[in-house]
Design a binder for these strands. Structure first.
Lengths: 211, 211, 211, 211
DNA sequence: GATGAATGAGCGTTCATTCAT
DNA sequence: CATGAATGAACGCTCATTCAT
C-alpha cells in the first residue's frame, strides 16, 4: 500500500509539511511561541486546525521540527562547503559566514531559532542533544583539526574555543535581532572572525595578559 | 504617607519583597517561567496569593524584577571592584570572574537569568534596554579604555568585542547549566580570558588569518 | 439495481457488515463507547474509515445495530426454542438459560449490551422501544400464558413479574461483568429460576409476608 | 488556620457545594453526562466555571460525587430506619419503600443515578466498590439475618437473593424513567415485595417448578 | 464500491488577577 | 496591609464525518 504512493504523492505531502513549517516560523516569530495559537498557524498555512496534527505531534513538536528541519539542511550545506576546503581557518570562516548569512536573510527564522526555541531548560536540553549538538561537534572538529595542523593554538581547550566562537556568533545574531534590526548581519563576519583568531590584545602584550 | 514610614517598617517591607523575589527564583528555576504558578511562588514565599500583587505588578513584572534586582546589585559590586583597578585587562578579568562566580554559586538564579528571562523578543528587548544594557556598557567602556591606553587592539570595534566577550561568557554559563551541570564554572575563567585576549590563532599566523 | 445484485454479492456485503459489527463489539467493549474511535473500529475490521459509513449511518447507529442485530438473532432463536415447549415454566426456564448462555460465552458482547448501550436516556429509550421491547413482550406473554394456565400466580401483575425476572437476570449479568468476572454465569440459572418462582419466603410465612 | 474557620464559614462552603451538586444533577439529567458541559453546570449553579474546580476535581469526580453524596445520605437514613425494626421482612420492606420513594420524588436524580452513572465499565466498577457496594451489603445482611431467623428460605444463596431484589427494584425504576414517566413509582412497592417473597409460582406447584 | 486525507466544531481545564473581608 | 475564594477568558487537541480520487 505505501509502495503504491507515487513520488508525486509523497512530494505533495512534503510540500504541505513545508508550508506548515513556514507558517509556524512566521507565526511563532510574530506572536512568540507561547502566545501563538495553533489555529493561527493553521490559518497561515491555509489548512484546517486538525491537519496540523496529521503532520506534527503538537505545538511543541512543531517548534522542535522547525529547529531540526532548518538545522538539518544547514548542517548538510555546511558539510558540503567545508569538505571542499583544506585550511581549518577557511573552514571556520565559511561556517561563520553561512551562519550569519542564513539567519541574516530570514529574520523570522532567526527570531524563532534564537529566542523562541530557548524558552525552557527542557527544551534547550532537547536542542543541545539534537541537531545543535551536531553543529557544535562540527565546529569543534574544525578547531581540533586546526590544532593538529598547528594553525590554531595548541594550548587552548577545543571545547572552550568552540564555546567562545559559537557564543560570539550567537550573541551577534541576538544583538542584530534585538538591538540593531536594520543592520546587515554579514558585514560583521570578517571583523568577528579576525577578533576570534587574534584576540583583543596585541601580540606584544600577550605575555602580560596570559598571566 | 510613605515618608511617615519608619526605617523599620520599610525594612520589613523590603524583607518580604526579597523573600518573594527569592521564592520566584526558586519556583521559576524549578518549573520554568511559563509553567510556574503564582500561587506556588506565594506558597514558597509564605505569603497569600494576593500579597504578591502588593509588591509586584504581575507575573512578568516579577520576573523582570528578579532580573533587575540581581543585576543592579551585581553591577554595583562590579563598579566597586572595577574602580579599585587601573589596568583594563585586570578590570576585564574581574568582570568575568565575578560574572562566573555570581552565577556559579547559585544555579537557580543562573537558570532564571540565562533561560527563563529569554523567552520572548519583547522581554529580551526590555532586558537589553535595561540593566543588561548597563552591564554591556560597562564592559564596553573597559574595552574602549583599554584601546585608548593601547592595551587592547585599536583596530577592532569595541561594540563587537563587547559582544564577543559577553557571548563567550554567556554561552559558557549556558553549557554549564545545560550540559555540564556538575562542573565548576569558575575554573574556566583564566583559559577563557586568555583565549579572548590572544585569540585562537598563534601570533605568527595572524597575518594570514587576518586576510 | 439492488435486485441486480447476485446472492453472492449480497453475501459479500453481509460478510463485511458482520465483520464491522464484530469489530465494533470488540472495540466498544475494550475502550468503551465514548472513548472508542471509529478509526479503531475500522482498523479492527480491516476496512477504511470511510467504509464504515457505507454500512452504517454513524457511530451511534453502529452501536444500535450491534444491539439490534444480536437481539434479533437471539429473539429468533428464543422463539424457535419456546415454540417447541408447552409448559410456561419450561419456557421461562429456557429463556433464562439462553439469556445467560448467550452472554456468558461472549464477554465483549455482554459488556457492550449491558453497559455501553445504556449511556443515555435517549439511547435507552430507543432500545426499550426496539428489540428490547420485543424481548420483554415475549417474556410477558409467557408469564400471562402461565397465569391463564394457572401455573403462575394470577394475583400478580404480569408486567411487574416480567420486570422482576428481567431485572434479576440483567443484574446477575452485571455482577458477573463487574464483580465476578471469572465465575460461570450459567451455573446461577437453576437457583435463580427457583428463587423467582418460589420467592425468598417459605410458603408457611406467605400469609404474614403478604401483608 | 483551618481552625480559624467558623462553623458559619464551613457551612457557606457546604452550601455552595450542594448548589453545585444540585446543578450537576439537573444538567446531567437534562443533557446526559457526556453532552453536558461544565460551563452549563456552572451557569446553573450560578458560579464561575473555575469555581467548580475549587469544589470538585473535574467532570467525572463531579458525577461520582453526586452518586456518593446521595447514596451516603440514603444509606444513613436506611440504617436509621432499619435499626428501629426487628423483623427482617419489615426491614426489607422499608428498604424497598425508601428506595422507590427517594428516587420517585426526584426524577432528575433518578435519571442520573440510573443512567448517567452507568456509562462505562470503569465507572461502574468504581460505583460497585463504593457506596453501592455498601448498599448491597446492607441488603445482603438483612437477607442473611432473615435466613438465620428462618423467616427467609435457608436453601437460597443470600448473594443471589440480594441480586434478585436489587435487580428487580432497579429495573422497576428504569421502566419508570424510560417507559412510564407519569406513573407513581411507589405504588409498585407492595406488589413487588410480595412477588419477591412469594415468587411467581403458587405454592402447590413449587415442587414441580423446583426441579 | 472503497479509500483515507482533510476538515473544523467543540470543550474541559488552568491560572493570573481581583476584591470583599 | 494581608488574605484567599472566586473569577472567566483562553486554547490545544480530538475525532466523527466527508468527499475527491
Amino acid at each position: 500500500m505505501p509502495e503504491s504512493k507515487t513520488a508525486r504523492e509523497l512530494s505533495a505531502r512534503e510540500v504541505k509539511r513545508r508550508r506548515i513549517l513556514r507558517a509556524a516560523i512566521e507565526v511563532f516569530a510574530r506572536d512568540g511561541y507561547y502566545s501563538a495559537r495553533m489555529t493561527d498557524v493553521a490559518k497561515e498555512a491555509e489548512v484546517a486546525d486538525g491537519t496540523l496534527y496529521l503532520y506534527f505531534d503538537g505545538k511543541e513538536h512543531l517548534l522542535l521540527s522547525v529547529f531540526d528541519d532548518v538545522l538539518s539542511r544547514f548542517i548538510d550545506q555546511l558539510k558540503t562547503e567545508v569538505e571542499k576546503l583544506e585550511d581549518p581557518f577557511a573552514k571556520l570562516k565559511i561556517m561563520i559566514r553561512l551562519h550569519l548569512e542564513t539567519l541574516g536573510r530570514d529574520r523570522a527564522l532567526a527570531h524563532v531559532l534564537q529566542i523562541e526555541t530557548r524558552h525552557s531548560r527542557r527544551f534547550m536540553g532537547l536542542l543541545a542533544r539534537g541537531k545543535l549538538g551536531e553543529y557544535l561537534s562540527l565546529l569543534k572538529e574544525i578547531v581540533e583539526e586546526g590544532q593538529e595542523l598547528g594553525r590554531f593554538r595548541r594550548d587552548i581547550n577545543a571545547g572552550l574555543a568552540t564555546n567562545m566562537i559559537f557564543g560570539a556568533v550567537d550573541e551577534l545574531v541576538n544583538r542584530w535581532l534585538l538591538v540593531d534590526p536594520s543592520e546587515d548581519l554579514v558585514r560583521h563576519q570578517t571583523p568577528l572572525l579576525k577578533m576570534l583568531c587574534q584576540g583583543i590584545v596585541p601580540c606584544e602584550f600577550h605575555e602580560g595578559a596570559a598571566e
